[in-house]
Structures are given as structure tokens and as C-alpha cells.
């Protein structure tokens, strides 16, 4: 008879190995980018425009472009996403409509990012004639991060105990006032977490902005929302694959800035969540 404890030992070792196979490369990737990218980071790199066909100079326009895009996406997606989350958590009933909405959200989050790019191109760039512009890119990214914001906000709203709602309603306070003054304030940390995660996602995506906004090389800052703009992820793609003989330092530096931006947002989200859990009063 086989010894079940030896089988267990072997199985657990294999599971541990599987875990290492994921976690170690992640750590290595982050460390490599930090170490190789760090020497490239200086004030000039962060504040200068790209020069000599992007082989030297800085990445300032790309940073600014990404910030514009992210800001635009959130301005569009947060109000809609938050209200949608309120609808799902506070108003909808268990019925067919609710189920269809849920399915729609799941699909929205599953649509490949490049298909969002196509959609943005067809609707905003061509149909609405915005052209390739910050506006078109922001709206495309905004729709893309909508499911993230809806799902996390909804979870945050639903985690507010029902008893709070009952107390408020039993005092003759209206439903909207209850939501506005009791439910929302207690859900804000969760909503914030979701919003920031959405921001991070929008900052890192390349495919949706390929045809809707991204400029290959635009060594100046955008002047209006109808301008094209450079963006960090697209810039990294361009200097990695489209431009020969770019100093590896610049590539790693760009990757580091992008990674730092995205990870910083995630870190903030994690901290908010952690603080909130510790402080939670009920």
C-alpha cells in the first residue's frame, strides 16, 4: 500500500513549486525593471521631450498624455459607474433585467482590449468625427474601465449593513437621502479603491488607444482634448518594436516609469482598503 503521507508530501511540494513558478518571475520582472530602469531616470528624462527620433531626450509628453487620458476616462466613467452600482445595489430587484445587466457587465469586462480600440475608432473617431484625439481615447478607456468601477463600487455599497438603511428609513428619511447620507459615506473607501484600480488599468492599456488617440511621435504637449497625444504604454511599444537602435536604458526607463505609475495606484488602493478594514466599525 502506498503511504498516504508520502503522497501528501510530494503533492504539497509540487503545489509549492507551482506557486514559486508564478511568484518568482513576478518578483524578478519587477526587480529587473527597477534595476535596469533606474539609471535612466533623471530630471531631464522625466521633463524633456523625446529627441533624435526618440533615441534620446525624455518622455515628458508621454507622461502628460497618459495623465490626461486617465483623468478623462475617470471623469466619464466614475459618475456613470457609481450610479450604476447604486442602481444594482439599492434599487434593482432579483429579476430578468438584473440578470441581463449582470451579464452585460461581465461581458463588458471580458471584451478584448483591442476590440475596445476598434469600437472607439468606429464610434468616436469616425462616427462622431472627434478624430484621433484625447477625447476619443478617454471615452474608449472610460467605457473599458466601467465594469471595474461598477463591480467594486457595488461590493462596497453592499457591504454597508442593511440595518443602517432600515434605521434611516424607519425615521421617515427618504430612500435617496438614506443612500446619500448613510450608505455612500460608508462605502467611500471601497469606491475609491475601485476607482483607483480602474485608473491603474486605464494607465497601462495600449490596445484601446492605438487607433483612438496615440501619436507615434509628437514632441509637444497637447493643447486641447481634440489633439492627439503620446501615451506611456504606446511609447514603450514604439521604442521597443518600431524604432531600431534605441538605447536599452531608455526602454527600461520608460518601462519603469509606466510600471511605477501603475503600481503606485495599486499600492494606494491596497492601503486604502487595508486602513478601511482596520477601522471598520461594524
Amino acid at each position: 500500500m502506498r503511504n498516504p503521507y508520502r503522497t501528501q508530501k510530494i503533492a504539497f511540494s509540487l503545489l509549492f513549486l507551482a506557486t514559486l513558478l508564478i511568484v518568482v518571475p513576478v518578483g524578478l520582472i519587477v526587480i529587473v525593471i527597477i534595476f535596469k530602469g533606474f539609471p535612466a531616470i533623471n530630471w531631464q528624462f522625466l521633463s524633456d521631450i523625446p529627441r533624435q527620433g526618440m533615441r534620446s531626450g525624455g518622455i515628458f509628453p508621454a507622461i502628460i498624455g497618459t495623465l490626461y487620458l486617465v483623468a478623462g476616462a475617470i471623469i466619464f466613467a466614475l459618475p456613470i459607474g457609481l450610479l450604476a452600482a447604486i442602481y444594482l445595489s439599492e434599487y434593482s430587484k432579483e429579476n430578468v433585467l438584473n440578470r441581463i445587466i449582470r451579464l452585460a457587465i461581465i461581458n463588458l469586462s471580458g471584451v478584448p482590449s483591442v476590440v475596445y480600440g476598434l469600437f472607439g475608432l468606429a464610434l468616436f473617431v469616425v462616427f462622431f468625427k472627434f478624430g484621433a484625439s484625447i477625447l476619443a481615447g478617454s471615452l474608449t478607456l472610460g467605457i473599458m474601465i466601467l465594469p471595474v468601477i461598477i463591480t467594486t463600487s457595488r461590493e462596497a455599497l453592499e457591504s454597508v449593513p442593511d440595518s443602517f438603511r432600515e434605521v434611516s428609513l424607519s425615521l421617515g428619511v427618504s430612500k435617496w437621502q438614506t443612500i446619500r447620507h448613510i450608505v455612500l459615506p460608508n462605502a467611500i473607501p471601497g469606491i475609491l479603491t475601485g476607482t483607483i484600480l480602474g485608473l491603474g488599468r486605464a494607465a497601462g492599456e495600449t490596445a484601446p488607444i492605438l487607433f483612438t488617440v496615440a501619436a507615434f511621435y509628437l514632441p509637444r504637449l497637447p493643447k486641447s482634448i481634440f489633439d492627439q497625444a503620446m501615451a506611456l504604454p504606446y511609447h514603450l511599444y514604439v521604442i521597443s518594436t518600431q524604432v531600431p537602435n534605441v538605447d536599452e536604458k531608455i526602454r527600461y526607463g520608460t518601462a519603469l516609469v509606466l510600471l511605477a505609475l501603475v503600481l503606485f495606484m495599486n499600492l494606494v488602493a491596497i492601503i486604502i482598503r487595508y486602513q478601511f478594514r482596520r477601522r471598520k466599525k461594524w
Partner: peptide
């Protein structure tokens, strides 16, 4: 005011259906 807000909430609740539909529609159109 509350009537308007609640209608707005309903509209946004339906937004995800609208956007999925819109994406599919424009993919088909082109």
C-alpha cells in the same frame, strides 16, 4: 429632485447593457 436622481440612477444602471449593445452594433456596422 429625488425623482430626477432616481431616474438618472436607473439610466446609468442600464448603461452597461447599452454599451455592450453599442459595441456590438458598431462592430457589425463596420
Amino acid at each position: 429632485k429625488e425623482f430626477i436622481i432616481e431616474k438618472l440612477i436607473l439610466i446609468c444602471g442600464l448603461a452597461s447593457i447599452f454599451f455592450v449593445g453599442l459595441i456590438f452594433l458598431f462592430l457589425l456596422k463596420e
